[in-house]
Write a protein that binds this DNA or RNA. Structure first.
Lengths: 132, 132
DNA sequence: CGGTATCCCTTTGGATACTG
DNA sequence: CAGTATCCAAAGGGATACCG
């Protein structure tokens, strides 16, 4: 079912969707903008299948939204992903989605609450819920 | 490949993506917000396969984003689709996508130009390009 | 850690045709 | 006009395993 390309549609919305890819990609972008960098962290956060995550990261890299970076030279250490300026510029899309989702309770868990978190643990005292 | 549900993620972004569905759905929403109503018009505008359009409209209806309406009682005449308030409220997402697409030339055809159009024909004099 | 490889099954895309 | 039906091929997803 080779995904039909939206290229050639003379439409910025279609073009944007084409560059982004799919819904997984938007979750990945969300997580990268929240500070996640590692492959396995992204996997854990999104529950995305390994092969699919690799494919999405590749597509996003080709779209200029994500960059791969070597983060340690000696010993040569792996790579991680982060957003390019073009990718960071997608924040308004994430915000629009989140706000709409909050207004209409898209998650079914209500709108997010503002929480105090411990600077040490980064977690609210006694809470295990997690929100994005 | 039953699309994994994003429900249960406690995330408004994931929830929003779940309710919307996929990239086709966003094109449909774009067109509905531009005033298209008829099945065949949506088909022509998006080049979406018939069965897929039907499936997306169904999903969007179940998500409360789209409504089906009988637009003529006698003779009983068909139905058309339009956005609910919840659907209309997605405009910010469309705007954010379009603006990002324009900034980074996602369509590859440059940002849209402002055009004069003839009130009769609705078309610019001598132009056949179409933008969204 | 950051992926690839493999297997299997479902859905989508694409084309075409048909119906109320 | 607004879909449904059918057929095919290919991609996605899901799980699991393996590798440098």
């Amino acid at each position: 079912m080779k995904p039909k390309s939206f290229a050639g549609m003379r439409c910025s919305i279609a073009g944007a969707l084409e560059l982004i890819g799919d819904r997984w990609a938007l979750l990945v972008i969300r997580d990268l903008s929240l500070g996640l960098r590692r492959y396995d962290d992204l996997r854990a956060s999104t529950a995305i299948p390994a092969a699919t995550l690799a494919a999405r990261l590749k597509h996003l890299t080709e779209s200029g939204i994500v960059e791969r970076v070597r983060y340690q030279e000696r010993p040569p250490r792996d790579e991680y992903h982060h957003l390019t300026p073009k990718g960071r510029d997608l924040w308004k899309v994430s915000v629009a989605l989140r706000e709409w989702g909050d207004r209409w309770d898209a998650s079914g868990f209500g709108a997010p609450a503002i929480e105090m978190v411990d600077r040490e643990t980064g977690r609210p005292p006694g809470a295990d819920a997690r929100r994005c």
